[in-house]
Amino acid sequence: MKTLTQKKLQHIDEFLIEHYRLYYIDIRAEVVDHIATDIEVELHKGKCYEEAFVLVIAKWDALLKPSSFFFRGIPKFIAQRWTKERLRRGAKASGLGALATVGIGSFFYRFIDLDADILWVLGTLLALYIGIGILYICNRGLMRDIPLHTATGTFLRVEFKQLGWVQSIFVIMPLLNQMKFIPRADGVFAFYFFIGSVMLFYMIHWRIDYQKEQLYQVKWKSI
């Protein structure tokens, strides 16, 4: 099978940047590889490079167009990956949050009279949300000091922005509850603890991935 020259590979690379704004070097390298393989198949069928290039780009066009939904402006095939990644990360954080909630709930049920010692519950929630706030500030500093220029880095920046909005809403909810704007109900503190635990585990996961992606970025820059 015919293989593409370095000049033609560079042409594909530049085309992706110019027409699809695919600036992420890690994802672009993968797309160039797939497109080059498809073009080589067409060349094997007897087509010239220009014909093969047009056919293959037409095939990839729908996937490379920017998403108009949650990840607006991001190529659709990347947005699809990111959506799956959000679900995977959310499911993992939710599972850990549920385990933490069951664990702390069992401890309170066995050793603490919630009606008489409500301050224990409020203190636990306060400590949890203060910890979330501190971790959020630390993560923001990490993102500011170590900017990432890969597709995963962009995903993590989007995630951080979304986490900020979600965190603000759920930090305010317990305060509204104490001010009687939200009616109390059985299990409401467990709900707050569960949401807080999910956010905490999600942000810990985010920080680990951000630091890991820094190593991959160094790898791509060194190529």
Rank of each mutant, 00 (worst) to 15 (best):
S106D: 00
V32E: 07
C48I: 10
E51W: 05
G133F: 14
I104W: 04
G133A: 11
W220Y: 11
I25A: 03
K219N: 07
V121P: 08
R88L: 11
K76T: 09
D26G: 01
D117T: 10
I74N: 07
I17L: 08
F108T: 00
G97M: 05
E159T: 08
Q80N: 14
Q6T: 10
L114I: 11
T154V: 03
D117Q: 15
K65I: 00
V188K: 13
W82T: 02
F193D: 01
M199W: 10
Q167M: 15
V121M: 14
W206D: 04
L135Y: 06
V54S: 06
Y202G: 01
G196I: 07
W120C: 04
H149S: 05
K59P: 07
I137F: 11
D38V: 04
F71N: 07
N139M: 03
A79W: 06
I12Y: 09
Y49P: 06
K212Y: 11
F193T: 02
C48T: 13
I134Q: 02
E30S: 04
Y23H: 00
A100E: 05
P75Q: 02
Q178V: 07
S94Y: 13
G103E: 01
I208A: 06
E50L: 07
F193I: 01
I182F: 05
Q167H: 15
L96V: 10
L22E: 03
L126V: 07
V56P: 08
I172K: 10
Q211P: 01
A58L: 10
A116D: 15
L64I: 02
L43I: 03
D33Y: 06
D186F: 14
V31K: 14
Y136S: 06
A91W: 12
I204Y: 14
R207H: 12
W60C: 02
Q80V: 08
D61Q: 06
I35Y: 09
M179L: 15
L156N: 04
R140C: 00
L16I: 01
L96I: 13
A100F: 12
G153T: 03
